[in-house]
Amino acid sequence: MSELTKSSANLKIAKTIKLFIGGDFPRTESGRSMPVFQAKSKKLYANLCKASRKDLRNAVTAAQGAQHGWAAKTAYNRTQILYRMAEMTEGKREEFIEVLTGTLGYTKIQANKAVNEAIDAFVYYAGFADKYQQLVGTVNPVSGPHHNFTTSEPVGVVALVGNVKFNLGDLVAQIAAVIASGNAVIVIMANEGAASIAPLSEVFATSDLTKGVVNLLTGDLQELYPHMGTHMEINSISFQNSDKKVLGELKEMGATNMKRVIGPVKEQLSLDHLINFVEYKTVWHPIGN
């Protein structure tokens, strides 16, 4: 934005930063915006959409519609799509750096490191999408003529609230940990790094990801979290924010549909982060004639 004022032969065109719902880039239906400023300055960087309850509900509808098809893809396919996200992040390195330096005041070195971490997180969970099943699945030695086995399935639609302090690598790890097993996710980007929605949503839009599997909303957490907590079609919440009061309220509200409300993980890149968002199904199959 600020570049607009620079005198130049070609007047720069700024990208309008919008939401990412169902694979599309809509503005918020509410018509509201919230300003993001340039690092350490009062100058406007961009007006982000301030997502409403209706936007959240639209995102849940999109996620629900997409989740089954995403889960039905082969694990090998999900692995390749997650790896593709790493490739697209590499391709958008300069855009990420521009947002991180521009809005958060990162040095170029810091910004490059953040992008590296994001890429590493995609690669880590790409590699896990077709392996965690073998680590947590079991064949159970029951006493009787049954082939008894336990497999994992995605929990369904997950709402994600990231760290209080923005960290691109962590956010990517949190998204990838949820979708690797076949869940769909709605991400509330409410911290100072929310402008990174622009390159991030384009990564998801160009990675052959089923539309609606990842939905990104910029907005006010305090306004949106009660609607997350009470929404009957949200099956689980990944709450990586350290606000214990909000976590407690989400768990309380989640009792309306027995939501699995998961507090902050210890390690971003780990098996337990991923399996926080799976259900276990045990099947008794007969053995006999």
């Binding site: 159970n140 030695p141 029951v142 006493s143 009787g144 049954h146 199904k281 008794w284 007969p286």
Partner: peptide, 18 residues
């Protein structure tokens, strides 16, 4: 559903997650 019985029902075993 978390437990699925095929050609049987209400079978339980300590080694089988429920």
């Amino acid at each position: 559903a978390g437990v699925i019985w095929a050609n049987t029902y209400n079978k339980f075993d300590p080694s089988s997650p429920f």
